[in-house]
Design a protein around this nucleic acid. Sequence first.
RNA 1: CGGGGAGUAGCUCAGCCCGGCUAGAGCGCUUGGUUUGGGACCAAGAAGUCGCAGGUUCGAAUCCUGUCUCCCCGACCA
Length: 561
Amino acid sequence: MKFSKSFIPTLKEVPSEAVIPSHILMIRAGLVRQLSAGIYTWLPLGYRVVRKITEIIREEMNAIGGQEFHFPALNPKEIWEQTGRVEAFGDTLFHVKNRDYVLAPTHEEIVAWHAQGALTSYKDLPQIWYQIQTKFRNEPRPRSGVIRGRQFLMKDSYTLDRTFEDLDIAYDKHDKAYRKIFDRSGLKYFIVGASSGAMGGSKSEEFMVKSDAGEDTVAYCGKCGYAANVEVAQSVSVNAARDNESKQLFEIPTPDVKSIDELCAFLKIDEHETAKSRVYMHDDKPVLVLMLGNDEVNESKLGPALGGNVRPCHPEELKEISGADAGSIGPIGFKYRIIADNLLEGANNLYSGANKNDYHLGGIDMKRDVPNIEYFDLRTVESGEKCVRCGSTLEVFKAIELGHIFKLGTKYSVALGVNYLDENGKEHPVVMGSYGIGVERIFACYLEQNYDEKGIIWKKPLAPFDIHLIGLNMKNSLIDETSNKIYEELQKEGYEVLFDDRNDVSAGVKFNDADLIGMPVQIVIGEKNLKDGRVEIKLRAKNEKQIVELPQLNNKLKELI
RNA sequence: CGGGGAGUAGCUCAGCCCGGCUAGAGCGCUUGGUUUGGGACCAAGAAGUCGCAGGUUCGAAUCCUGUCUCCCCGACCA
């Protein structure tokens, strides 16, 4: 493709709407333009990358027996009502105003609808149906460029099986295919076991990429691969101590001491000798939650531990419940249910609030003084703590979800009546699985992992072109002739070539554009080398330049690409 | 939805607090010329309903009210 005739609007300045590297690079390199919040147009260069990604996905999905469909994005609302998901999605689902249609945010319903009555025999199963399609979700807050948009490309596949055992096989095939897809895309990723949430299913795994732009926080062990969302992550951490002797309870005046840090400083004690109190309202009954030292209550763990509705108490409720304000609340004399984090189990000689403003208690023995307490894992894992599986150090960081594989079970097949007859003529619901990949997230994550101060660094699999051919001074007829000839030859050799044949920009502009757009190999045709019958080859990744005799160019490229 | 920031030329932004003639800069763009191995130079030029609506005023980019849009943090996120 000739640069002079292409729409590649590169930008020297950083556009104000972009914050994260991948977004900035996409805009600056002329890959994408925003139309509205969370809605993007892929420009020709960027769309080439999208197609490289989708082609990798197709190959791997076909390799496990997937059949490519194209389901409609516009769906009758009625079908969505049958599974209760119009309500479940709520405002996230786009509704069409002048018809009872919705814009599909995913396609379980439509797959089930087509399967119903069509897959009627055990002989029809298993099936793997997939598509690469535009999805619509009314995200309340689109962000991070294409990473969270209101319209986005998704590869979604659905497996239809007879039994849960067969589902295991289909799930495993997807697990392997996904690894291949992300490996081939050149991404560094890891896998997190996750709870299946509102999709309604049992087992699921998320494929994640470490990134500050991520929306999930995960704990990860580099040694054994343990990875979990911090909402559920566990770690080995040190229990509060139990001394041989328990002191008697004693009251300490602690004027203006509220936080654990202030308490430790005031009494000159260690954080691990203290217990922090938080009061929650659980189905209209107060619950005191005790944490060791300064540990924060992990509300994602607290909810499931208690069941029902849980919310933090309002400050004005605290006094009535405990007799004190926040900062002076503690377990002794607290009249309602008390639960604590596991780390506090059996500890003694602890300091905590006295349920009396400006007073704390010392000498608390959990066994002796708080006999009816219940223990749960309520901590939030922090970086530096030890892995529960192998004991090495955990890292906590933000991550982007690239893909997710679910064992759905029979939720949708039951709701929409997708049944088959087995060998004995007995009817069963089809067992389903659902598997998604965010196509643009592969794109964005690749960029997050492959750039430098000059711009993007493509590797061959996703690069829009293999070679960026640069004719420096195109008004020089020898350069013009030679570079055009090389352009033709390289294409005959089967390379995808972007040819910077512009005659109205200086060399510096071409070099900088080439580095910004980031094709793996640059070939520079300039007077300096051409007068000796040579050209320069530059590898973008290593910033390595080599001078090559013209007749050797082809061999050299075979070696490099 | 809560909190914060922003909307002025294609892009990045100044001007706004403290109202005043024809609204500015850099980059980009057009034309001519000189350049051509790291965003080069000279000259001439085009380009703006100052987000929108209403109000205050002799006079509004500037003050007031409303509204829309975009960005960031949070909530939410099959």
